[in-house]
Amino acid sequence: MERMREYLSAMCTGWDVQTVRAIVADTLDHIVDPMIYDEAVTLIEQHRAAGLDIVIVSSSGAEVVEPIGAKLGADKVIATRMVVADGKYTGEISEYAYGPHKATAITALAAAEGYDLQASYAYSDSITDEPMLAAVGHPYAVNPDKALRRLAITRDWPVLDFSRPVALAERSRFREVRRPAVAAGILGTVAAVAGVLLYAARRRARPEAS
């Protein structure tokens, strides 16, 4: 974790924020077509129909994760964020969304938005996300690594196997979203983003009109 933090800091120091965002946007639109599992799309639609919010949780930089989240109609994004001064990255990391930090972040978000974590769903493929999975009432291991698969079996967590990757652009229905999507599911492999996850939080209960 510390080596990765140092790498991110060294790589970004001095870069102009708007330039980086423009490069990422152009790359996603014209060079890299992010991949998503078709099974994940079905999960997203099911959770959306149930009135759930989409929150993408990723250790990748917000500059990459946010555009992908926008393509998916996500309500919110939790990602690694760099400190900015005078429009440039200072090299310092303000939020590092990795491992236990993901659990801390979703707990804070739940408190701020009124989400019920015990009624929420989380999907991951990595043992590093055990804290996040353990924080919700409905954890799922999706195409898990060996360590997470063993843990899921031990804790009786459902294990899902996704096998139908599809280019995001081919799923044109995402481009027709008219309002923030509400759902849950793991995105699967996303080109240009390592370990992108999707975490679903149930909307707060609204009092019925009298």
Rank of each mutant, 00 (worst) to 15 (best):
F162P: 06
E92I: 09
A183H: 01
H101T: 10
V84Y: 03
V142I: 04
L187Y: 00
L168K: 02
Y115D: 14
H101G: 12
V196K: 09
P180W: 10
G195L: 05
A103M: 14
Y123L: 10
L117N: 12
V190R: 00
G188H: 05
Y89M: 05
D161M: 14
P100V: 07
E113S: 11
G91T: 08
P131N: 08
E92A: 08
A169R: 04
G137T: 09
S120T: 14
Y98F: 04
P100H: 14
T104S: 15
E92H: 04
V159C: 13
G87E: 06
R173K: 10
A108L: 04
A141I: 01
P158E: 11
F174N: 12
P131K: 07
Y96C: 03
R173I: 10
H138V: 02
G185R: 00
M132Y: 05
V136L: 09
F174L: 09
V193P: 01
I186Q: 07
E92Q: 09
T154Y: 13
D129M: 04
A103K: 15
G87H: 10
E92T: 04
D156I: 14
Q118C: 13
K88V: 07
L197T: 12
H138G: 06
S94D: 04
K146I: 07
A169G: 04
T189I: 09
K146A: 11
T189L: 01
L160I: 04
R149T: 13
A192Y: 07
D129R: 02
Y98M: 08
K88M: 05
P144M: 06
V177E: 15
N143P: 03
